[in-house]
């Protein structure tokens, strides 16, 4: 009985607290696979065309059998090196052939290695824009171009977030505002500009790549930040975990699975070999 009371109290606390994320143990599989939920996968720094990217692609197709996501968001550096039409086949269409054939929609953002003309590539669903927004049920997604954060884009972000009545607001772009990786780390200048806007308009989750590792940060100003820049590239041993790190993995390529239902966002970070290296739930903060 006392255990049941404690569990009820814990659930009540979770439901009323501002945005917070609770990590489940890697063995837990918090993805509920609920019928009305938004289901998506996340990849970042993927477009190498090398074997690990193909293995991640196969692992994503396997994961889709148990968790039928219909959307993949791409955190930039979608293609490395040459970007001729054949490269889009070799570094995107072939690694994710199974998903593309199943009708999964990819929504890309641009990284520093991407040709700006990539926004016209149909399968990236960018509509020819450097930054754009789309909705899935009660979730508003904003794909931003963190390479060039001009005044026009900033005004657009503010306007789009202000107008959004969606329960969840998720922003994704290439350069991380928070990261404990050694090579790049946090983009503090971007953070100084973007974070006040995100906080003001109630953004719940921010996803980025650029650092070739997986990291989940402890909530910062009510926002949960993820870095997943290891879906093709990998910088082994690059993480310098700090007190802001909630979970991290830099030993293998990864991708993420996300399910959003009502006030909960469940997530898993899955390695190239199919191991769940991080999982948990982010609870939506109440509107102020």
């Amino acid at each position: 009985m006392p255990q049941l009371l404690a569990l009820l109290l814990l659930l009540f606390f979770r439901a009323t607290s501002p945005a917070s994320s609770q990590a489940a143990s890697p063995q837990d599989q918090p993805l509920g696979n609920r019928a009305e939920s938004v289901k998506l996968a996340v990849i970042g720094d993927s477009g190498t065309g090398a074997a690990p990217q193909f293995e991640v692609g196969r692992q994503m197709a396997t994961a889709r059998a148990r968790f039928p996501f219909d959307t993949v968001i791409m955190l930039g550096d979608n293609l490395y090196g040459r970007q001729q039409p054949q490269d889009f086949v070799d570094k995107f269409e072939r690694p994710y052939a199974g998903l593309l054939e199943s009708g999964v929609m990819f929504y890309a953002s641009l990284g520093n290695h991407d040709d700006p003309a990539g926004r016209y590539y149909k399968a990236f669903n960018m509509g020819g824009e450097r930054y754009y927004a789309f909705s899935k049920k009660n979730v508003r997604f904003l794909a931003l171009d963190s390479n060039l954060m001009d005044a026009k884009q900033l005004a657009w972000i503010e306007d789009t977030l202000k107008q959004s009545q969606d329960a969840w607001k998720i922003c994704y772009f290439h350069h991380p505002l928070y990261s404990n990786a050694g090579r790049h780390g946090s983009e503090v200048e971007l953070r100084v500009i973007l974070e006040p806007i995100f906080v003001k308009y109630g953004v719940n989750v921010v996803l980025s790549g650029h650092d070739h590792v997986y990291e989940r940060l402890k909530p910062q100003h009510g926002i949960t930040y993820f870095v997943d820049g290891s879906s093709g590239q990998l910088r082994k041993g690059d993480l310098r975990q700090s007190e802001s790190t909630a979970a991290a993995f830099d030993q293998d390529q990864t991708f993420m699975l996300i399910e959003i239902a009502l006030d909960e966002m469940s997530f898993e970070a899955v390695s190239r070999t199919g191991r769940i290296v991080d999982s948990g739930v982010v609870y939506r903060r109440p509107k102020t």
Binding site: N112, S146, N147, L148, M149, D150, H175, E189, L190, I193
Partner: peptide
């Protein structure tokens, strides 16, 4: 020429 961002840096 360049807006704020990592490329400018």
């Amino acid at each position: 020429v360049m807006p704020i961002g990592p490329l400018l840096a």
